[in-house]
Write a protein that binds this DNA or RNA. Structure first.
Lengths: 209, 209
DNA sequence: ATTAGAATTGACCGCAGCGGTTAACGGAGG
DNA sequence: CCTCCGTTAACCGCTGCGGTCAATTCTAAT
């Protein structure tokens, strides 16, 4: 790719990147017109081809950017220094929200990319996905103390259920269209509070309402 | 459309319908090639155009079929005779599973259709969606007795959380590719049991696990 | 066997829209 | 005035689309 791209003002880079994520997350790789990306970014198709030699290069750049962004934010928010489970979920949520604020379509893009079948990009995706996946792999649940939770609780199930509810909520929001990140952050906070209220053992040193 | 379609053997009708759901749920309306549907159904494009005059007609037929199937199965499984909340969820799940077994891509199709922007089909979709939505609207939660549940539980939150977890699980499965309905049914049953174990008031006349 | 009629198809058409190229435009600096 | 460079409109060859239609195969009654 043309390094001139990085000399562009941040805002313009972002606009182009997000346009890419948006279009590629809506269609297959093959059926995503570069012209639509250019339009969405407010530049001409020619200019886009000036920065990226071809469609494939643009796509793979976006993919790499994707992994890079995810990892950097997860680290930034300290999502893997898990002391308290719920605190960790909260940090994870914050990281996700921050990413979504900056790159609203990155989530759906990742999913689409992962299941992309086109031989022009598929191998590259598959190869580098493992890295990201390994990174995200939950070492969670390893060192949870059952005494902190209500007696007889299936911790595995609890975790799965919370994870799924988060995913379900996210899905709900994404498909609703406009992402009101403020509201999402608030809703997530509520959800976490709810989970604490039902899962955590009561009457301990924890001050909850 | 050509009524000859309905004289086809059930299995062939199904094959065509499912091919339609599959292709239309993968791409936008405009970017879904009729030829791919025909291929996927194992017939020629010409024949498909023999049964449906044009793409639009095929699409809207599939949409109608969709509403019709959903409603009929929800009724068949008695999903709205809610006495016990969890029983109702179980019935709902069974209905969904039955549908997915018969029309694996119908779920994703509905979602795609709902957010379809193409002026050739959008208005028709939007108009008839309200019906389906009104039908599915949860009168649930109306007549729940708080005494059945653990004290202080926020019933609204509980319901939302269960709903989201279900969606999250479904999303997880759908995006994983092959839909092992048996396993899904089993997992859902487990989830419902889990919910009963954490939400339901203990030590009553209810005999659980 | 013959044949009418329906089921089914391959080949075709005109056209839209794609990825990518290129020649030219326009504004800032000298 | 020229030159550079970010930027674009116009263009090109081509693919693949929706839809048609004449031809072929299948079915079954005679």
């Amino acid at each position: 790719m043309n390094d001139k791209f990085f000399e562009l003002p941040e805002e313009k880079q972002q606009r182009i990147i997000n346009a890419g994520y948006r279009v590629f997350s809506k269609n297959t790789y093959k059926k995503s017109p570069v012209s639509e990306i250019a339009d969405s970014a407010g530049i001409s198709k020619s200019l886009l081809f000036h920065y990226f030699h071809n469609k494939q290069e643009l796509y793979l750049f976006l993919w790499d950017k994707c992994a890079q962004v995810t990892i950097s934010y997860l680290e930034k928010y300290g999502c893997y220094e898990q002391k308290d489970l719920f605190d960790m979920m909260y940090r994870g949520m914050q990281a996700k929200m921050h990413i979504m604020r900056k790159y609203p379509y990155i989530g759906t893009f990742v999913v689409k990319a992962y299941y992309e079948k086109d031989p022009e990009v598929c191998p590259a995706i598959q190869k580098s996905y493992q890295k990201l996946f390994d990174y995200k792999a939950n070492k969670t649940l390893m060192n949870l103390n059952p005494d902190d939770f209500i007696p007889g609780l299936d911790l595995q199930m609890m975790y799965k259920d919370m994870y799924r509810a988060s995913e379900g909520y996210l899905w709900e929001m994404v498909h609703r269209g406009e992402l009101d990140v403020e509201k999402m952050e608030q809703d997530f906070t509520e959800m976490i509070a709810f989970w604490k209220s039902i899962y955590l053992r009561k009457g301990e040193s924890n001050g909850s309402d």
